[in-house]
Amino acid sequence: MFNNSARLAEAFRLFDLANGEDPNQELNEAGQPEPKELLYARRMTACLAHVAPDAPEAVQLAARCQHIRRWAIPRQDFPLTRPGYHQWRNTLKKFHAELAGGLMAQAGYEPAAIERVQQLVQKLRLKDDPEVQLLEDVICLVFLEYYFLPFATQHPEEKVIEIVQKTWPKMTTRGHALALQLPFTPEAQALITKALA
């Protein structure tokens, strides 16, 4: 089971306080509004606990702070082009890593542990690092379960299919198997089937 050390609990508390300031609200599974990134962080933790209940502490931390204060760097601050999108994503990764590192230091983590979580958050050495790959599986599973259908309703079908086709190769074989067990709506299932055909 997950490690419940005092400093892990304190880091989670600090991450959640930071994400709790998100001005954007989203309905949770009970239909109650919650700060969007706080809800995302909790979904990441829950998914990781399901996929890898013995996940290392660094992965638990990285999952919880993956989108920490994401709203602080809006997409519209960057050119609305593909290079602009990549610039925004890379800026976010560094921002999340630095902010998480500062909060981890407050919680009592040493520099080596902080650096490891920062590597994970920035997804360095994806495909070569099993822990980065585990985190990527969880990110993809959370996207597919909670955010795929809302995304699909806002974009043309060809764009949605392209996103699925880009997401799929990032996952492991086990990640694929878990994704195909998700409770998709018929609309979402049809899009995924078409994308993977």
Rank of each mutant, 00 (worst) to 15 (best):
Y109D: 03
W88S: 01
A97F: 04
P83G: 09
A97Q: 05
R75A: 07
L103G: 04
A105V: 12
Q119V: 12
V59G: 04
L92K: 12
L120H: 02
A100S: 15
Y109H: 11
W88F: 12
M104C: 08
R82W: 12
R69W: 00
A63G: 11
L92N: 07
K93H: 14
Q76K: 13
R69K: 15
L120M: 04
H67E: 05
A52M: 10
A97D: 02
Q119A: 12
A112N: 11
A105R: 15
R75G: 08
F95Y: 15
E98S: 10
A58P: 01
T91K: 11
A62T: 07
I114H: 04
H96N: 08
A63D: 00
L48S: 10
P53C: 04
A107H: 00
V121N: 02
L103T: 02
R89F: 06
Q76H: 13
C47W: 13
Q122K: 15
Q118I: 01
L61P: 02
A97R: 00
P111Q: 08
H50M: 12
Q87S: 11
T91P: 06
H86V: 13
T91L: 09
A52H: 06
I73A: 01
F78E: 08
P79V: 07
L99N: 03
A113Y: 02
Q76E: 14
P56R: 09
D54L: 10
M44P: 07
A112F: 00
A107D: 09
Q122V: 04
L80D: 15
R70F: 09
R64W: 03
L92A: 04
L92S: 04
A55D: 02
H96M: 12
A72V: 13
H50Y: 09
Q119P: 04
P56K: 01
D54H: 14
V59A: 05
